[in-house]
Design a protein around this nucleic acid. Structure first.
Lengths: 214, 214
DNA sequence: GTCTATACAGTGATAGAC
DNA sequence: GTCTATCACTGTATAGAC
């Protein structure tokens, strides 16, 4: 299958596999190009640098992940109004878990790179990805605000960061046997954390109107 | 001050500073030894490898951090019986935050390396540190179980992992201006998460005895 | 455009002299 | 203990072939 693929794709596939198996820095471009049946210089030609190659590997997976999240979120928002908090959180957590435990072993590998490189490295990659998927975070924050009216936006963004941290850490850490059970725990934990720390905004006209409307 | 220190310490100081400023892989042993006024081969002589040097840098800080955590935990457990959940969580979170925002700028730098290398790299460093400080995690898990009787141990360990993930992610991410406010949010969030997801153990003799004893 | 061969400066590590 | 010299290897850049 990868034999017929373009050089670009063969390099991406080989890089993802090797990064996950050996680690980013432990993998040399010579290993990658050899596995991809390409010339050493092909990496710099197609991607610019080793760092940029890593970014491309990420993007391919994260695009799919975040699209799956948003689609699931849409379904949740269509199903109930106001939406159920737990369902929103599941829409965020479960596609990530599915990625690591799909039938393709690649996904499982991938999340280890994700977790590792999410923190590691050059600041650039991290900031690039954060900015690229900021709109996903905002859509989830908005949805949660709908499910939990009266939430202070600043605190909500922070708490979403708590969730992201817990999720990535757990996924990279756990032995991945009982991933579904862990995901459920995380959703329950986060829902309780959010419900328990709702910061009602200072009483304003809008807030009072909302109370009346209920 | 570092002029009178031993070669070993001068290397550690220089390495910590440079790792934090430039990143681990971006820092060469030649830079470190030059800054430490030592010979290139001194690193391998004193520490064995660049990786082992990083581990030594970590250990020096984490020993202090976890000792501070445990001391504060002791005070909490002495102050009230059963202890207050929030106080236990503060004992875990605040020393970490203080480390990043101490008057010494080193601390702030350090936490960025921590977060980065905690995920990155060789599995070895990560596992080594996890094992080394596992007893700290257990003491906190035990304390929380005391504050929230009826908690299922398995879920508690998981939730502590949620806290660790959220903490490291947030510390590495946040702009560190309002660290204290973030730390408070995290404690409140985690406390709510824990209280909201207490999994009472299946009613057994032990459980019933506990209820009677109260 | 796509790919290749080759060169280059810099890396971590090590063996052996002092 | 410390230092010098040296090694194999790295990511990157470029000139030129198809």
């Amino acid at each position: 299958m990868s034999a017929n693929a373009s050089t670009n794709d063969r390099i991406l596939d080989a890089a993802e596999r090797l990064f996950a198996e050996e680690g980013f820095h432990a993998t040399s471009l010579r290993q990658i190009t050899q596995a991809a049946d390409a010339n050493l210089a092909a990496v710099n030609y197609h991607f610019g640098s080793k760092q940029a190659l890593l970014l491309a590997v990420f993007r391919r997976r994260l695009d799919a992940l975040n699209q799956a999240r948003l689609e699931r979120l849409d379904h949740v928002l269509d199903a109930a109004d106001p939406p159920v908090l737990e369902d929103i959180l599941k829409a965020f957590v479960f596609p990530a878990m599915a990625l690591t435990h799909g039938r393709h072993h690649e996904g499982q590998r991938f999340m280890r790179i994700l977790m590792r490189a999410f923190a590691d490295q050059d600041e650039q990659l991290h900031r690039a990805l954060s900015a690229e998927y900021a709109h996903v975070m905002r859509r989830f924050a908005d949805a949660i605000a709908t499910a939990l009216p009266g939430t202070e936006p600043v605190h909500l963004r922070r708490q979403l960061d708590f969730l992201v941290g817990a999720l990535t850490h757990t996924m990279a850490e756990s032995e991945l046997e009982d991933a579904e059970s862990i995901a459920s725990d995380l959703v329950r934990f986060t829902a309780a954390g959010l419900r328990g720390t709702v910061q009602p905004i200072a009483r304003s006209g809008a807030r009072r109107a909302m109370e009346i409307a209920r």
